[in-house]
Design a protein around this nucleic acid. Structure first.
Length: 575
RNA sequence: GCCCCUGUAGCUCAAUGGAUAGAGCAUCUCCCUUCUAAGGAGGAGAUAUAAGUUCGAUUCUUAUCGGGGGCACCA
């Protein structure tokens, strides 16, 4: 158990609150950790207590002020023997904060632990026995891999890595958009133009052209649906062309995944669930929930009972399936195959309504148990410089590959001669830029910013790791001993690094739980910055404290490396 | 028209209702005969507006004004 968890458990006992608040304090004046639990309990507003889920065995009327209540809790905490092993001092402060100072040797043993566990440091078993399925990346076949797919790909990968690190059984699925009326549109255009050019560029052109033609002739939408129906019914020409489009696209996508160094367990794609879709259509337990759509021919699932006025389109007028049908079928498959505890959809915010509908429908149709958690991360979008959404239909996109190439090129110009390092740095810059933003916020695309290699950036963190490596390499006399003696006279910079190091496992848990890799980014940047301050202010090799300082360098490099690996960012030895 | 999200420094972004609102870019001053200057130290600079709830509000509520996304046979 880490220090944070130990304090939490003691606090839980002393306050009688199930999930007391504990946060790291950046200002040592307020301890290493701080809790506002006394003030929360004291706020005797029933509604707030209910809203925050705070139930305490302590009745607030016994105490005159949150400060008095805090003192009461502190007294209990002081008699906690387990806690006294790691905590040096507990005090109340201000209006009723409870502040904890960790013992110096907690920091020492933490250093030793990091050095011992190396790349496993920070791992946990809290997810053992639990399964998480995550749907991410999910580009559409026959369209270029645009900048828009970057978020889903890298955030999804980071969430996957985080949960795996926490001991979950994790299954990643690239839910390729390889089915649906979009292919009808393409098949119609291919037939119209009698073309055999199935290159992505041409397919994209046809798709854009289709939408231009539709502006003048809405009946084309109907033709597209007819073509998709043919495809769905297994018509051989449609299937052959469709298959060729898929092969072309997959080659293209795989090249990009190689560049990004992303490997997704499965890539079943929407077409994979044809069997489940057919079974659902014939299942009386499902069909009893289907009602006629407005035209009397389509079948929809009514969601007004749970406050969603837009019904879910289950079968189109021509009997063809929709995106929603396929997503429901996917749930059926995943439940049957993996029995997951959590299913995460790392999909953009523009599909919020769809997932709201989908999750509601899955419950109505009894496809999942109530205890399965369905999560839509709803990441924000890359917006064009004019502040609007990039549009595939309008042909306005930025190809991810161009961005990646440019970043690698810039990394080379900075002096990274070997290709692997240039690639790690260039790709690292792009991934970090994406991940550092909070998941839900939109990001305005800017060539200069996305490949930033200074300041709060991927290359900054990679550079810090390389710097640590370089110091370690020069420190040939390092024996890794005699650490215990130096703690009475740590300087400010050293203390800051030490205090930051102990937070790693807590940050990982929080980042995973809230599906927010950006929290890990901020942490790593904070750690690197504190280390760099230390590095600039003090000599390492040759100092009387050199054993300690070298150790500090070694484990900082290790923690940064572990964190970056979780983010899917490689760390070159040298740069 | 209706629904959802959002508004923090010149720009791009952080901050489970907590203590002095953090960064990066840009800008101004310094620091390489010292272990990697892709670095470090320091200036200047921000919570859209108006009420409300609270011991305490960037965070919660309401209104106003911006911005974005969506609203059954695209995904």
């Amino acid at each position: 158990m880490n220090q944070e968890a130990s304090i939490l458990s003691a606090l839980k006992k002393a306050s009688g609150v199930d999930s007391p608040n504990l946060e790291f304090t950046d200002n040592l004046e307020f301890g290493d950790f701080s809790s506002n639990i006394a003030m929360s309990i004291f706020a005797n507003q029933e509604s707030r207590i209910r809203n925050q889920g705070i139930k305490s065995t302590i009745h607030d009327s016994q105490f005159k002020s949150p400060h008095k209540l805090a003192e009461n809790i502190v007294n209990k905490l002081k008699s906690d023997k387990e806690l006294s092993k790691i905590v040096d001092r507990i005090e109340t402060a201000g209006p009723g904060f409870i502040n904890f100072w960790l013992k110096k040797d907690v920091f020492v043993s933490n250093l030793i632990q990091i050095d011992k566990e190396k790349e496993d440091y920070g791992k946990s078993k809290i997810g053992n026995g639990k399964t998480l399925v995550i749907d991410y990346s999910s580009p559409n076949i026959a369209k270029p891999f645009g900048i828009g797919h970057l978020r889903s790909t890298v955030i999804g990968q980071a969430i996957y890595n985080l949960y795996k690190f926490l001991g979950y059984k994790t299954i990643g699925d690239n839910h390729l958009g390889d089915w649906g009326t979009q292919f009808g549109k393409l098949l119609y255009m291919i037939d119209l133009k009698k073309t055999k050019d199935y290159s992505i560029d041409n397919l994209e052109k046809l798709y854009v052209e289709f939408h231009n033609l539709v502006k003048d002739d809405e009946s084309l939408e109907k033709h597209a649906r007819e073509w998709f129906k043919k495809l769905e019914d297994g018509e051989s020409i449609a299937r052959t062309v469709w298959k060729q489009c898929i092969n072309v696209s997959l080659n293209e996508f795989n090249r990009i995944y190689d560049m990004l160094n992303v490997k997704i367990d499965n890539a079943f794609g929407e077409s994979f669930y044809e069997e489940e879709m057919r079974e659902m259509q014939n299942d009386p337990k499902i069909s009893k929930f289907l009602v006629d759509g407005e035209d009397g021919k389509s079948k929809v699932i009514d969601l007004t009972s749970i406050g969603i006025t837009t019904p879910l389109m289950f079968l189109k007028s021509d009997g063809g399936t929709t995106y929603a049908t396929r997503d429901l079928a996917t749930i059926v498959f995943r439940v049957k195959k993996y029995n997951p505890d959590i299913i995460v959809y790392e999909v953009g915010v523009e599909q919020r309504l769809h997932f709201k509908q989908l999750f509601a429908a899955a419950k109505i149709l009894n496809l999942i148990n109530d205890d399965v958690e369905l999560v839509h991360t709803a990441h924000g979008l890359y917006l064009a410089p004019d502040g609007k959404k990039f549009s595939t239909r309008g042909g306005k996109t930025i190809k991810l590959e161009e961005v990646l190439d440019e970043a690698i090129e810039r990394a080379k110009k900075l002096g990274n001669k070997d290709d692997k390092t240039a690639k790690d740095v260039g790709i690292g810059a792009i991934k970090y830029f994406d991940l550092m933003h909070s998941v839900q916020s939109n990001v305005v695309f800017d060539w200069e910013k996305i490949m930033n290699m200074e300041g709060n950036s991927g290359p900054y963190l990679q550079y810090t790791v390389a710097r640590c490596n370089s110091v370690i390499q020069k420190a040939s006399t390092f024996k890794g001993q005699a650490l215990q003696d130096v703690y009475s006279n740590l300087n400010e910079e050293e203390s800051k690094v030490l205090r930051t190091l102990v937070r790693f496992s807590g940050i990982i848990a929080t980042a995973a739980k809230s599906y927010s890799p950006n929290l890990l980014c901020s942490y790593l940047y904070d750690l690197a910055q504190k280390y760099n301050s230390f590095y600039n202010a003090h000599r390492i090799i040759g100092d009387t404290n050199q054993e300690f300082r070298i150790m500090l360098t070694k484990v900082t490099g290790q923690v940064l490396k572990n964190g970056l690996k979780l983010l899917g960012i490689d760390t070159p030895e040298k740069m």
